[in-house]
Design a protein around this nucleic acid. Sequence first.
DNA 1: GTTAGCACTCCGGACGTGAGAGTGCTAACT
DNA 2: AGTTAGCACTCTCACGTCCGGAGTGCTAAC
Lengths: 354, 354
Amino acid sequence: MARRKDRPFGPLDPRSQQILRAVIEEYVTTAEPVGSQSLVEHYNLGVSSATVRNVMAELELGGYLTHPHTSAGRVPTDLGYRLYVEQIAPQMHLAPVERLMIRHQFGQVEFASEQWFRLAAATIAAATHAAGLATPAKSRSCRLRHVDLVATATQTASLVLVLAEGSVKQELIPLSEPYDQHELDDVSRLVNAELAGCSARQVANRLESLALNFDVPPLMLRICQRIERMMRDFDAAAVEDVFSDGLLNVMSEPEFSQSEKLRRVFVALQNRDYLGSLVRRVATSTDVHVLIGAENEAAEMQDVSLVLATYGQPGRAMGVVGVLGPTRMAYPQAIGTVRFVSGLMNELVEQLYR
Amino acid sequence: MARRKDRPFGPLDPRSQQILRAVIEEYVTTAEPVGSQSLVEHYNLGVSSATVRNVMAELELGGYLTHPHTSAGRVPTDLGYRLYVEQIAPQMHLAPVERLMIRHQFGQVEFASEQWFRLAAATIAAATHAAGLATPAKSRSCRLRHVDLVATATQTASLVLVLAEGSVKQELIPLSEPYDQHELDDVSRLVNAELAGCSARQVANRLESLALNFDVPPLMLRICQRIERMMRDFDAAAVEDVFSDGLLNVMSEPEFSQSEKLRRVFVALQNRDYLGSLVRRVATSTDVHVLIGAENEAAEMQDVSLVLATYGQPGRAMGVVGVLGPTRMAYPQAIGTVRFVSGLMNELVEQLYR
DNA sequence: GTTAGCACTCCGGACGTGAGAGTGCTAACT
DNA sequence: AGTTAGCACTCTCACGTCCGGAGTGCTAAC
C-alpha cells in the first residue's frame, strides 16, 4: 500500500509489470479470465497466490485489469494492453525460418506487383492467425505515364492508362463512328504527346486550351476528357483497394462466436472512407502503429485491435499493411510480423523506383 | 391413403402441392418449423388442421418434409425445395420498379467494365438479401490484342497486355540494362507486329521460330516469353476472379448464428478450383441453375443453396452470376433476380462485341 | 512486506417442473 | 371415401432451484 501511495501514478514496479504481463499472456492463450492460482502455477513468479491477488487488486485500481464479476479471474483492459505493448512486451523478432519463408513467398511473385498486396495480407494472416490487411501503394496524386487506345469492337475502344507507379486503369469508350486500329494509334500518339507526365490537374489545364483549339479532332478531345475524369477519380479515392485475408481466423475466436459484433467489423471494413481515415492516421507515424479496442474511433471497431504500418515513400506511393484481430491478441507476434512485412514491401517499392 | 396407394411415386395432387408450398413459404420467412395450426391460420387452405396434418404426414413419407422431433412442426427437405423450385413456385418476375433501378445502376458505370461484376454481385445481394456472386466474362482461350511496354524506373518496365475481351494484364519486367521509352516503343511495335491476334498457343509457336532467329533482339525475346507465360497462366485459370457481396447477409441468418458452418462455406468460396468446377457445371445449362443443399458435391456447401446462371457467348467470353444463401431461401425471388441480371450482363457483353 | 487461512460471492451446470406447441390416432360426421 | 373434432401423448423450452467450484478480499500471523 505504502508503495502505491508513494507514487500513485508513477510507472509500475517490476513485479507488477511481470504479473500484468503474465495475466495478459495467459489470457491471450486461454481466452478465460485469469485467476491468481493458475498464475502462480504456470509462471515462476516466486510469490504466493495471495500476493498475486494483492498486486492484481492494485493493477485493477490503476485501470489495467478488470473483473467480469466478483468471483471471477482478471481480464486485461485496453489500457493494460496498451502498457503491455509499449513497455512490457518482449521485443518480437520473427524467427529466421519464418523470415526466410516469407521472403521466399514474395520472391515467387516478384514481378506481378498486383499480387504483392494479396500476398502481404495472406502472409500476415498466416503468421498471426488473425486477419491480414494490405492496401496497394498509392500516391497522393497520380501522373500519367502512357495512354493506349485499342479497338475491341467496331464502335467500342478500350482506353488503357498506365500511371506512373506502374498501375493500370482501363475503361471502355463508345465511338460515334467506326475507327480502325491505325486511326486509334494516331490518336493515342497525339494524346501521349500532349499529356504524358501530367498530373490530373495538369491534364485539366491542357484540356482547357485544347477545347479552344478547333484543329483538335473531337475524338481526341473526348479521350482527353475521359482521361481527366479517370485520373481525378483515382486521386479522389483515399484508398484504392483493401485486400484482406484470414477474416475467418478472427471469426473462429471465441469472443466472436456470437457473430453480430464481427459482422459490424466486416461492414466497417467495406467502408472505404473509414479505411481512408485510418490510413491517413497511420501515415504520420513512422513505426508500427497499434490501435487497441476503444482507441478506434469507430464504434464498430471497439472490440478489435489493429496493428498497422505504412510502407513506401512519403512523397510518392504509400500503402498500409496490418493485422486485425481481437483485442485479446498476440501483440508481439503481430507487431513483429507487420514490421517485417512492411519492411519487405518497402524494399519492393524502392526496387521499383530505384 | 388410397390415393397414395394408387400412385405412390406419381406427381403430387394439387392440394399436397399447395400445402408443400405453404410450408416452404412460411418456413422461408419465419425460419421456424411450421405447424398445421399456423398454416391454416395464415393461408386459405379451406381445410382443417387435421387434414393438413394428414397431408403433411404423406409429404413426409414422400421425403419432402421432415420433423426435427416428434412434437415439432415440419421443415422442408432438399427434395421438398427441389420440387418447389421445379413445379410449384410461382413464376418470379422482378417488379418493373426493381428492374428499372438495376438497369439504372448499371447505366451509371456503363463503361467501367471491371465494375460490372462488383455491381452485379452487389445488386443481387441487395435484391435477394443473400450473398451475390459474379465472375468476369472469360473466354476459354484468350487472344492478344495489343502490347504496351512502359519504362517505370531506370531498369524496370511495365508490360501491359490488352486481351481481346478488353481485359488488361500487367506485370513488371526487370531490364538487364537501361532503356529509354523510345527504345521500348520500338520493341513493343515489333512485338505487336509479331503477336497481335495470337492465342497463347500461337504465341508459343511464334516463340519457337523467334528463338532460332539471331536477328531478334534479346529483350524482345524475353518480352515474348513473358507474354507467353502470362497468357498461358490466364488460360489455365478456370475462374479468373469471383466477386462476392453481401456474405454478411447470410451471416445474419439464424441458421448460421453458430458461425462454424458458414466459416466452412467461406473457405470453400476462396477455393478457385471449386468455383471453377461449379462454373463448368453450370456452363452446360442454358437457364438458371439451382443447387440445393446436399446437391452440392462439396461437403462444406451442403447447408447452403446456390442459384447460378451464365452469361456471355458460349464460344467466346463467358461468366457466371448467382446467389448464395441458406437452403431456406426465397427461391422465386432469387431465380428472378439472377435471370434478370444475367440477361443484363448478356446485353452488355453483346454490346461490347457487336 | 508476505503468506496462510477463511468466509463470502457469484457463475454455471444439473435437475425438476409446467406450459405450450404440435403430433398421431380414433371415432364421428358428411 | 374423405374430412374433421377431440384427445392423449410427446417433446422442447423457459424458469426456478440448488449446489459445487473457482476466485476473491480480508485478517491475522509470520
